[in-house]
């Protein structure tokens, strides 16, 4: 708890008083979320103690040669974090460039860069966006007032806003064939799930409202802090079939990320902005060779 206070942006307490009431009102309306929130409060404190004994700077290296552009990271991230249709915490930038037949396809897996100088954290008026353990850029949905300043500030477009009530699809009462198929809501109830039938409760360990997101807040990748604090890799890293995502501590000299960053020239997105992203890219998606040539006049 102390650590969390220490790492929160300064001057937030004033604002926080304001949102207290708002948060409380939400607590009444969203009892389940309140429960989760309590878990955050205590859970983080315990984890902070164990993790801050040695300060970590958690980072990801994405090896583009190994990346097959398959999108398993995007899908499994949504799976782990109960990310709804239309939202992506892990995402991609893709395009086809060149003219036939001299064409290549570019594909860049993206996610929150967990910038060391995170603009979203700097501008957040409530401290909802804050730096957590391992220098993970965390978001606390209970404090978020949905002002979207973070979205405006983030140069990477990795923060999503819940403009509408979440999981709309699953709240429908309309079956396709009356009596013979179910309504989406009926499936959720039948399997006794929260929000979505394949709802993953693990996410609640550190993120209040991960399943009961509500209209008017933002959300984004937390590097699967709930897994990391349990000694497990972020889910996109674990599930990438190609081992294209490598996770680790930049402060540990012999970590896999440092070994790879030492070996290959890397780049990060929009480095010139000075945000110091902690997602690095190495090698090339198209490592193909060509026959040596001097060209021609």
């Amino acid at each position: 708890m102390k650590k969390l206070q220490g790492s929160s942006p300064q001057g937030q307490n004033e604002l926080k008083k304001k949102i207290t009431r708002r948060g409380l009102l939400k607590l009444s309306a969203w009892g389940v979320a309140a429960l989760s929130m309590a878990k955050v409060a205590e859970g983080v404190s315990v984890a902070e103690k164990s993790l801050t004994a040695k300060r970590k700077r958690l980072a990801m290296v994405i090896d583009l040669q190994r990346c097959m552009g398959c999108g398993a990271c995007i899908i499994t991230c949504k799976n782990e974090n109960n990310v709804q249709d239309g939202f992506t915490w892990a995402d991609k930038i893709s395009k086809t460039v060149g003219k036939f037949p001299n064409v290549r396809y570019e594909y860049l897996p993206t996610l929150c860069n967990h910038c060391e100088k995170a603009p979203c954290v700097e501008v957040c008026p409530t401290g909802a966006m804050h730096k957590g353990d391992g220098d993970i850029t965390m978001h606390n949905p209970k404090v978020c007032i949905g002002c979207k300043t973070c979205i405006a500030a983030c140069p990477y477009g990795v923060i999503s806003f819940n403009k509408k009530k979440p999981y709309k699809f699953w709240k429908s009462d309309e079956p396709l064939i009356k009596g013979a198929t179910s309504s989406p809501r009926e499936v959720v109830q039948k399997v006794k799930a929260t929000a979505i039938p394949y709802y993953n409760p693990d996410r609640e360990a550190t993120l209040a409202g991960a399943g009961t997101r509500y209209k008017g807040i933002v959300e984004k990748c937390t590097l699967c802090d709930h897994r990391v604090k349990n000694g497990k890799l972020p889910y996109c890293v674990q599930r990438c079939p190609a081992k294209a995502r490598i996770f680790g501590d930049l402060n540990a000299p012999n970590s896999a990320v440092n070994r790879i960053l030492g070996k290959y020239r890397s780049f990060r997105l929009k480095e010139h902005l000075g945000t110091k992203p902690k997602v690095y890219y190495v090698r090339s998606l198209n490592p193909g060779t060509y026959q040596g040539t001097r060209g021609s006049v």
Binding site: L4, N13, I19, T20, A41, K142, V143
Partner: peptide, 15 residues
């Protein structure tokens, strides 16, 4: 007053 920072077990019980 309940802020995320100060949410303690005691405050939680109040909630």
């Amino acid at each position: 007053k309940i802020s995320q920072n100060k949410l303690t077990r005691r405050n939680f019980l109040k909630t």
